[in-house]
Amino acid sequence: MPLDDRSTDRPVIPTTSQRTGGGSGTVGDIHAREPVITVRDCNVHYGDTHALKQVSLDIGRNEVVSLIGPSGCGKSTFIRCLNRMNDTIESARVTGDFRLDGQDIYAKDMDVVLLRARVGMVFQKPNPFPKSIFENVAYGPRIHGLAGSRRQLDDIVYESLERAGLLAEVKDRLDEPGTGLSGGQQQRLCIARAIAVSPDVILMDEPCSALDPIATARIEDLIDELREKYAIAIVTHSMQQAARVSQRTAYFHLGNLVEVGPTEKIFTNPGHKLTEDYVTGRFG
């Protein structure tokens, strides 16, 4: 259990493995250099199913963490814990210590609305609102009261579309329905919608699984650019994608976080047999 505790300038939150002497068995360093989100001993139950077991992981500023693993291993469950989207699932029970900049995400006084404004999410299937392109992006700033005037709102919308790499394609038809765009454009619209409320973290749940390779490449470029400003966690089934966009990779298996480490190391020199089998394509 090589857990090198490099940084000394931040409060150390002991993981279970440290406390119990390696009980949860995650291989590699779960810490990020500049953590925005820290998760310790996350357990999720759906009814009787134990979906996530003792998972501890950090997501740091200006980095992309990719979450890989076979279907049903708990990757999506994990990122849905980070903005409390699991609250909407009645049978889900979440325990553990989740912190966003040191603030307890699951505290009683944590406002979920505020949390989701700070932790944006992009879903697997592009899900623009059945409204105009402009309204799609403007909705977030509007409900959070980010724009004082129509002009400011315009600025936010244009800037978000620009950052999402969509402005050039849609600037002449902002009042057309967002659902009329192509799949890749829709997904970039959803990204624009997420960044319009200036979050600290963006969670992406297989954002490219419904897209063709060209649209996928555009989104990957976009993710790389977005890293400059945001902390990003991305769930993906494509190992090439994980290798291309992320700095760190976490491998989940049957609800366990098996291994986490620098992306290059995970793909070239994995520390766990399961990880090796998965990344070399022996199963998954």
């Binding site: 903005n83 989207m85 909407t88 609305v113 505020l114 949390l115 989701r116 404004a117 944006g120 999410m121 879903f123 299937k125 899900n127 623009p128 609102f129 059945p130 909705y139 977030g140 409900i143 959070h144 959803c190 919608r193 997420a194 319009a196 409320v197």
Partner: peptide, 27 residues
């Protein structure tokens, strides 16, 4: 109404009531 619409609204921080009245109800 597809759940994806609810998720989209909740995901950017709409309150449950805003989600219902802005998105679910019109659909």
């Amino acid at each position: 109404v597809p759940p994806s619409v609810r998720e989209a609204a909740l995901g950017i921080g709409a309150s449950p009531m805003q989600t219902v009245f802005h998105h679910v109800l019109p659909l």
